[in-house]
């Protein structure tokens, strides 16, 4: 493998993950299309995954715990995407829209 870690430390990966997470958060706050919302949540989950892999590398010798956690996050992300998209299809069937700002009937 490339030996690039002579000049690279964990904080660079932390900053990269923070930026990715905040971009995903911005998308969740900004977009109203429910599919894009789900995609932004996937982006945030991936930022966390990257951080787990970086910390697994940071911990050094024979420590695969960080990489194992990435697998479980992937499991949760896949389940979340399946259920979320099923809900989305049902919402579309009933309202003909995927705009989340119309789904406010619980507010009144």
């Amino acid at each position: 493998m490339l030996n690039i870690f002579q000049s690279l430390d964990i904080s660079h990966y932390i900053y990269l993950s923070c930026v990715l997470f905040c971009i995903g958060l911005f998308g969740v706050l900004f977009r109203r299309n429910a599919i894009v919302l789900l995609m932004c949540i996937e982006l945030m989950l991936n930022a966390v995954n990257l951080l787990f892999a970086a910390f697994s590398e940071y911990m050094g010798d024979k420590d695969a715990n960080g990489q194992m956690f990435v697998f479980f996050i992937m499991v949760v992300a896949a389940a979340e995407a399946a259920v979320g998209l099923a809900i989305l299809v049902m919402v579309y069937r009933n309202t003909r829209k995927t705009d989340v700002s119309f789904l406010d009937s619980l507010k009144d």
Partner: peptide, 12 residues
């Protein structure tokens, strides 16, 4: 700042 220790390539 903490420099990464680095894993052996077999770990992944």
């Amino acid at each position: 700042i903490a420099v990464m220790k680095g894993n052996s390539p077999e770990i992944g």
